[in-house]
Amino acid sequence: MGIKEQIKTVLREAEIYRTQGLFNEAMVKFKYASELIEKNVKPENGRHLVNGITKKVELLKQTISKYNDPEKPPEMPVEIQNLIREKFSFSTDKESAALDGAIALTKFGQFERAIKEFKELLKMESFRLVAAKNILRCYFASSTSSSSAAEGAVFQYKEWLTLGLFTPGQLEKIRFFLENLLREKGIESGLPAAKEEKAAIKMEVAAKKAPDKAMPAIKPLIEIPGSGEEEEEFLDVSSVGIILETGEKKNPEIILDVSFQSGNMVCLIVPVREKLLIESMKAGLRLNNVQFYSPIAILNGSGVVAAFTKISSGPKMGNYSLDLKMFTN
């Protein structure tokens, strides 16, 4: 194949990948085509082509960053929300199924509707606390700015203080939970408590009882109820420490931040400088020496690598993403 033909072929491939939505693949091919042209075609003939390709690459970059934008998913039509609520609730009793449905709505980013559903669940004693926490979390997940989220959540909490729906103990747990949500957003707040002195004692109790569902959740979007799938039951982890076992040498602990947690799965960002770690990671690998750091407790355990991939776009590009399934000892 002559060089002209080769360039044409590469460009045609790039176009096909682009139309198929395989943007990263298209990008690689476009860049390769540019290289080929720059190396093999006289500048006066090639410049024009390369400029055209550069424009396409720019457009692709925009498209890719749009796709990776953690922008809030749009609120769906009611019929679709109903479908989500109906199809993704698996519990057999009606009340638990309603909770499942509301949680599914949050997983699909349908926060306003989810708040409505959780408010219904407040009427049921057994779900009251978990529903309240979820409502607060929905406020944070759905707002575009943390200050408006905080406003909404605090307003809600104050309303609950006056309603007489919750026991003082429950209100205390909610306050503790909300303060942590706020702190995460860098907002220190002195929320009014239900009863001042009792509050201090209750907080201590809550703090000692880790891991407990009263614990502040750090990353996951939703509060998982106490019953149901045990795979989802795991304390909220803010960072994970890994000690690699390579030969006899004792390796230092590598601390990684959690970017997302769902049940006992955490997604960790591995900086590109952690060469040893990056070299040894692969899906399925078991790590026997792992520490899970939560705001209250540190647990020893192990982990299984579920996925390990290089981040190919966005602000963390070039670093690695490590999905780890956590097990405590």
């Binding site: 990776n68 993704f88 997983k107 699909f108 799965m265 996925a307």
Partner: peptide, 11 residues
């Protein structure tokens, strides 16, 4: 897409 692991599991 890789990043939608939690909704994928739900489905």
């Amino acid at each position: 897409q890789v990043q939608y692991s939690s909704t994928r599991k739900l489905v």
